[in-house]
């Protein structure tokens, strides 16, 4: 086993200079991820403080749909698995700078996009239903903090989905250069990171709220 240069799946020495060069690139992305983690942490803290501040309006028990949250969780977890498979396809099927990338990478990316899109569609549907049921974000401090926390995660997922489309487009139009490999690797870190944030959201916000 070669030495791991950074946390995350490493390209490996078979990729030659691309492996060594990705170290600083990925480290920089980890710095971003950790600052993002602090941002989510603040919103988690705010949410817990505001959890009873419903101001007489509807609360978790009236608004949350546990079945939908379970489906979203399953979709996001499946997308994490397919994201891992995409990383493995990159590491083992793209060792050379082949002009036409093998299909497996694109297929796993497309599947990840699909599961991510299922997650986002369900989440947007839930938000629309909550707002329609008389609980827009301005209804109470609790609803504001809920929308900020869950909405920010949804926004991150949206960005991740757009990012997948850009990557699929780039590997289709250009050869799989080192810089594109690096972008694929940091996108995978970003995607797995969002799934970890979701563990916090479904545990603290949804399951905690429905107890």
């Amino acid at each position: 086993m070669t030495m791991q240069l950074y946390p995350g799946l490493n390209l490996g020495e078979a990729h030659g200079p691309d492996h060594a060069k990705s170290e600083t690139f990925v480290f920089g992305f980890w710095v971003f991820l950790m600052s993002d983690l602090v941002l989510f942490g603040m919103l988690f803290g705010t949410y817990v403080v505001m959890r009873d501040a419903t101001a007489g309006g509807p609360g978790p028990k009236e608004l949350f749909d546990l079945g939908s949250v379970a489906l979203q969780t399953a979709a996001l977890l499946l997308s994490s698995l397919t994201c891992g498979m995409a990383s493995l396809a990159l590491k083992y099927d793209h060792v050379s700078d082949a002009p036409v990338p093998p299909r497996s990478l694109g297929r796993w990316l497309a599947l990840t996009f699909f599961f991510g899109a299922v997650f986002l569609a369900l989440e947007i549907r839930d938000f629309v239903e909550m707002f329609a049921a008389g609980s827009p974000p301005m209804r109470s401090a609790w609803m504001s903090s809920f929308t900020a926390l869950v909405g920010l995660h949804g926004l991150h997922i949206t960005v991740g989905l757009i990012w997948i489309l850009v990557l699929i487009n780039q590997i289709g139009m250009q050869s799989l250069r080192g810089v594109i490999k690096q972008r694929l690797m940091v996108w995978a870190l970003y995607w797995h990171f969002l799934d970890i944030i979701w563990i916090g959201i479904f545990s603290v916000v949804f399951l905690g709220g429905l107890l």
Binding site: M3, Q4, M34, V38, M42, G45
Partner: peptide, 30 residues
């Protein structure tokens, strides 16, 4: 995420642990 305590550069692990510490202080303190 393949975060492990061995076989990798220490800076990365320090970064992750420090961010986690900040998180705990922020959330717990709030």
């Amino acid at each position: 995420l393949h975060i492990s305590t061995s076989k990798q550069k220490r800076e990365d692990l320090e970064l992750i642990l420090f961010a986690t510490l900040i998180m705990v202080i922020l959330i717990g303190g709030t």
